[in-house]
């Protein structure tokens, strides 16, 4: 029972006084893989615009752009970059849990909290850049200054919910597979692992959709449509 770990992160090795955990290694591996694929796609678009890799790149960018247009109502290139990076990173992290011996980095509360804090910082930054500090912070006082505490609580609680949702889903999926392997055998958890594929992609989509909605709401209050 003690070997089941929810919050612990096994240390792979130490660099001087700094412990390097498995999550850090997997995260760096995922980032490197994504960067290499992106660089390959970039050269493919320049040299072979009709090739297969270029088509994949165009489809990916088009889908992510469509997501932002659906949520915000207009094209916001930097938001596409932000949401797209989040989606590709989280989806790859979630799916990396299917590799043998790899624990998905998103099944660690530190990773998901870091991602949620990025969103938490981006929302007011986007609002302030679009309309200035006064324009953005005045929306906290609408429709009534009495609601200011509720606005502030919702900012924090939705960040918390964002990180806990991703963490809980990925950790529980991984844990259920581990428990079934320990209790039943090798082939029994296969349906659940297939479900994990779906849940991993769905949770990545939901995380990105919610963060896009949050940032889009900050932009919308800035343009005065709400």
């Amino acid at each position: 029972m003690n070997r089941i770990e929810i919050f612990q992160d096994p240390v792979a090795f130490n660099i001087g006084p700094v412990p390097v955990t498995q999550t850090m290694l997997t995260t760096i591996g995922v980032s490197l893989g994504l960067v290499v694929v992106a660089a390959l796609m970039r050269t493919a678009i320049r040299t072979r615009p009709n090739g297969r890799l270029a088509a994949v790149a165009e489809l990916t960018v088009d889908a992510l752009d469509g997501l932002v247009v659906d949520v915000v109502g207009r094209r916001v290139p930097w938001l596409t970059v932000f949401s797209g990076s989040l989606f590709l990173f989280i989806a790859t992290c979630n799916l990396s849990g299917q590799l043998p011996g790899v624990r998905p980095p998103t099944a660690n509360l530190a990773t998901t909290s870091a991602l949620a804090i990025v969103v938490f910082v981006t929302v007011p930054a986007a609002g302030i850049v679009s309309r200035g500090p006064v324009g953005y912070f005045s929306h906290y006082l609408k429709p009534n200054p009495l609601l200011l505490p509720l606005h502030l609580i919702s900012e924090v609680s939705r960040t918390f919910a964002l990180s806990m949702r991703l963490f809980g889903n990925m950790m529980s999926g991984h844990l259920i597979v581990a428990l079934l392997v320990a209790l039943a055998g090798i082939l029994v958890p296969m349906p659940l692992m297939a479900l994990d594929l779906l849940i991993g992609l769905l949770q990545a989509y939901i995380f990105v959709l919610l963060s896009t909605v949050y940032v889009g709401a900050a932009l919308r209050t800035a343009t005065g449509e709400e």
């Binding site: 029972m1 089941i4 770990e5 929810i6 919050f7 659906d70 919910a161 806990m164 949702r165 963490f167 809980g168 889903n169 950790m171 529980s172 844990l175 769905l202 949770q203 989509y205 939901i206 959709l209 919610l210 909605v213």
Partner: peptide, 28 residues
Amino acid sequence: TRNLFVSLAMVESTAIFCLVIGLILLFA
């Protein structure tokens, strides 16, 4: 469908919170 998934995720997160608390009580 898009809004359906968002609402489902919002509601589902309460169940996930309860599951995480249950797992903390069991294993940590």
